[in-house]
């Protein structure tokens, strides 16, 4: 846990970006998420940890209504982004997902060029008035994805030709290109090797300066390294939620302790 010193702890309370109350998720008859209450703060990295199948990814997908694309999933409870209910009938999930971007477990670049991959979001949301503006957005996003230097000479090569770590950073660049306010990351490093993982983690720490980042991870070390807040899920319940440092050094719940010390998981 000595990595923890790398992350500067900011204990002072920040503005709450996303407020979740009494959240329930059902997959058909299966009650996957039970009574979860979480506040996601702005400009903070929040990590969701827990054993496989505990519901952390499911919960993450509720935050930008990705569960809408699954027919049998049903979500209850209140999710408020800046005080507005994101499950309100009047909310277009399309608009919501522009504000709450997502990066997936497996890098999934589109079978298009690197440039088109990044430009895809700005294009569909109409963020650029002309080609020059679009070029600018693409460059900026790639820089923020910490991949600009590697691809600037081959922007029109297919995105699928990059290495795994590069692909994932491309996907992050693609996600930030739409200027989201919250960035959801579903185990973004699980398909990457240690070097690529380190690069992505560094990137996440950078992103914290502008976005609220929520990351689901299997690796407790990773949670400890990159996050300020940590939520521990177990069997669909939110067991404990608090400062990362406290969760890892002095957990309140015995289940959290068992998980952290490797007895369950």
């Amino acid at each position: 846990m000595n990595d923890m010193s790398r992350v500067e702890r900011q204990v002072d309370t920040k503005e709450i970006k996303l407020e979740c109350r009494d959240c329930q998720v059902y997959y058909g008859d299966n009650h996957a998420i039970k009574d979860v209450n979480v506040d996601i703060e702005d400009k903070t990295v929040t990590a969701f940890i827990g054993p496989s199948g505990c519901g952390k990814s499911t919960f993450l997908r509720c935050l930008n209504r990705m569960n809408d694309t699954i027919d049998i999933a049903r979500v209850e409870g209140s999710f408020k982004l800046d005080g507005e209910d994101i499950y309100d009938k009047r909310v277009d999930p399309v608009q919501l997902r522009a504000k709450v971007g997502m990066v997936f477990q497996k890098p999934n670049p589109f079978p298009k060029s690197i440039y088109d991959n990044v430009a895809y979001g700005p294009r569909i949301h109409g963020l650029a008035k002309n080609k020059a503006e679009l070029d600018e957005i693409v460059e900026k996003s790639l820089r923020r994805g910490a991949i600009w230097e590697e691809v600037k000479d081959r922007l029109h090569a297919p995105g699928t030709g990059l290495s795994g770590g590069q692909q994932q950073r491309l996907c992050i660049a693609r996600a930030v290109a739409t200027e989201p306010e919250v960035l959801l990351m579903d185990e973004p490093c699980s398909a990457l090797d240690p070097i690529a993982t380190a690069q992505v983690e560094e990137l996440i720490d950078d992103l914290r300066s502008r976005y609220s980042v929520v990351i689901v991870t299997h690796s407790m070390q990773q949670a400890a390294r990159v996050s300020q807040k940590t939520a521990f899920f177990h069997l669909g319940n939110l067991v404990e939620f608090g400062e990362t440092g406290q969760i890892f050094t002095n957990p309140e719940d015995p289940r959290t302790e068992s998980y952290i010390t490797g007895r369950i998981g």
Binding site: R90, V94, Q95, G126, T178, E179
Partner: peptide, 20 residues
């Protein structure tokens, strides 16, 4: 980078803009 169209913090989710 702050493009007014995305709305930033000010624009409500429930009010769909013309493009949406």
């Amino acid at each position: 980078m702050q493009n007014p169209k995305t709305g930033g913090h000010g624009v409500s989710l429930t009010a769909a803009d013309a493009r949406t």
